[in-house]
């Protein structure tokens, strides 16, 4: 990992979060390795949709790994950790996808966590209308965040905010979670004011984008449920388990 140094306008929380960021190459190698393993009870060469489902499962496992290493989250009991992740799992996956596309920087294709590039024309031709519309809606948010010049520091802070975005009544130890929310909000505000003084409302604009991340994640869950009802999801799928888990 790159060393990160502090400096004026660089909140300590953001520095710590940068150090916790998983190495994209290592994540890619792990997921590619998993996808190449023939899984029990699954055909040797699963259909592209089955591969996408396993890819999403493995991406979520990387997100859980990240959360477990996060300050505050690692201090919580497992019940609260589960409650937080059950609340935001789909948003974290959507935001992970969005940020990968911002780094990818191409409007006519998407980059998968495995490093594969898929042309949007291919998505239009092969993915079905529901998935295609999801991908296009996500691409609109990518453009919006690109125009806002979302940087890595803001990305890690927003991801942390998503993880802790839950009301107290659902948690056993809300005081820790509330403290994390307040620190992350303050860090993001300080950072944006200091590094983007010409864009006075960047903080508010970024928070507004989280509303769209939530809306996208709802649409993604509806899509998953639709596939589940059509018996198209692989067995033992982690995302379907998350979808079916009793909500708080």
């Amino acid at each position: 990992p790159e060393p990160f140094s502090g400096g004026p306008g660089m909140p300590e929380l953001i520095l710590q979060l940068l150090q916790l960021e998983p190495d994209e190459d290592q994540v890619r190698a792990r997921i590619v390795g998993c996808l190449q393993e023939p899984a029990k009870g699954r055909p040797d060469q699963p259909a592209p949709f089955g591969l996408l489902c396993r890819m999403a499962d493995q991406t979520f496992i990387s997100i859980v790994d990240w959360a477990r290493r996060c300050m505050v989250f690692k201090e919580l009991e497992v019940a609260d950790q589960m409650t937080l992740l059950q609340n935001c799992w789909s948003e974290l996956l959507v935001f992970d996808h969005i940020y990968r596309q911002i780094q990818h920087g191409k409007e006519d294709s998407i980059l998968l966590v495995t490093g594969q590039e898929v042309e949007l024309t291919t998505v239009a031709a092969q993915a079905g209308s529901l998935l295609h519309s999801l991908v296009l809606r996500a691409q609109e948010l990518v453009l919006q965040l690109h125009a806002l010049q979302l940087d890595r520091q803001e990305f890690v802070c927003l991801k942390f905010l998503i993880l802790f975005s839950l009301d107290g009544k659902f948690l056993n130890n809300y005081s820790l979670v509330k403290d994390a929310q307040e620190k992350a909000n303050a860090a993001l505000l300080d950072y944006t004011l200091c590094h983007y003084p010409h864009c006075g409302d960047k903080f508010q604009q970024l928070l507004l984008c989280l509303v769209e991340v939530r809306a996208l994640s709802m649409q993604a869950k509806e899509y998953l449920y639709h596939k589940h009802l059509g018996n198209e999801m692989p067995r033992n799928n982690l995302l379907i388990e998350m979808l079916q888990a009793k909500q708080t």
Binding site: E241, Q244, A245, K246
Partner: peptide, 26 residues
């Protein structure tokens, strides 16, 4: 206030619970 065991996602629980040791195969 949190969800009971009936609605608990088992794979997530296994991923989060350090006492379970080995990771589940997903």
């Amino acid at each position: 206030p949190c969800q009971g065991a009936a609605g608990r996602p088992a794979i997530l629980y296994a991923l989060l619970s350090p006492s379970l040791g080995a990771r589940p195969s997903v």
